[in-house]
């Protein structure tokens, strides 16, 4: 179901853990771009906050422990555990884009997909979104606004991918190597997030991942084959 033979694009993200400063710019940009609701305090206290991308903070080492940041978002696994379990085919895989899709109008709210996801990156709308007027003016019309009962997750800004592909098709050309940029990648100040088509050798992610000793994937041993590569932190050449 998820073989690459017929795919046109293999969208891949590279996260440079050495550069991520945990500033949450990607989190806010994702909310703005994808109409992700902010949950109020009591909903958050009920463990129902929704942030499609989150910066996980781990404490490392003996006290005083230092923090390390790990941006975590839907890994768009090539063997996604969330796909086989959806009874209504709301969580499906795109063979052309190599993405894990969430079809909102199909979702009935089983929440089995979130249960199966080892990265816990799926978010269920337990409540209706609260956008008091005129905050509704800010909603992005290119993205559906989800109500209660629908599962959602990072889509790699599929609306931007589609828009770029439409533009390219209308102009009769191929997509440029770095033409598609999701919201989080676009705003990240230290450029810790990179995005591109791994099938295109000219794209930045292809060049960064070629022969990269630092590249690894999270929970790789589970066999989910995620589409996001993390470059683990480096050591300075300065000797101290």
């Amino acid at each position: 179901m998820a073989d690459a033979t017929q795919a046109e694009h293999k969208w891949t993200m590279v996260v440079d853990l050495d550069k991520c400063t945990g500033c949450q710019a990607c989190v806010v940009a994702c909310h703005a771009e994808n109409n992700v609701p902010i949950r109020n305090k009591s909903e958050v206290q009920a463990n129902r906050a929704q942030h499609w991308i989150r910066i996980e903070r781990y404490w490392v080492g003996d006290p005083p422990a230092k923090a390390r940041f790990l941006p975590m978002l839907c890994q768009h696994c090539n063997r996604a555990p969330c796909e086989p379990v959806c009874p209504v085919y709301a969580s499906v895989h795109s063979q052309r884009e190599h993405l894990n899709l969430q079809v909102y109008n199909r979702c009935v709210g089983t929440r089995y997909c979130n249960n199966n996801c080892p990265y816990v990156v799926r978010y269920f709308n337990f409540y209706d979104p609260y956008f008091p007027a005129p905050l509704t003016e800010q909603l992005n019309p290119d993205v559906t606004v989800r109500t209660a009962g629908i599962m959602e997750k990072c889509t790699f800004c599929i609306q931007r991918i589609n828009r770029a592909e439409q533009q390219a098709r209308t102009e009769g050309r191929d997509l440029g190597p770095d033409e598609v940029i999701p919201a989080c990648v676009q705003t990240c100040p230290p450029s810790a997030l990179l995005f591109g088509d791994l099938l295109n050798p000219e794209s930045r992610v292809s060049k960064v991942l070629a022969d990269n000793q630092r590249a690894l994937r999270v929970l790789e041993h589970l066999g989910t084959e995620p589409a996001i590569y993390y470059l683990k932190g480096g050591k300075s050449y300065v000797r101290f």
């Binding site: 400063t21 949450q24 989190v27 806010v28 909310h31 902010i38 910066i55 903070r57």
Partner: peptide, 9 residues
């Protein structure tokens, strides 16, 4: 978006 997003630390 600011007050409802997680603080990094």
């Amino acid at each position: 978006w600011l007050v409802g997003s997680p603080d990094p630390m």
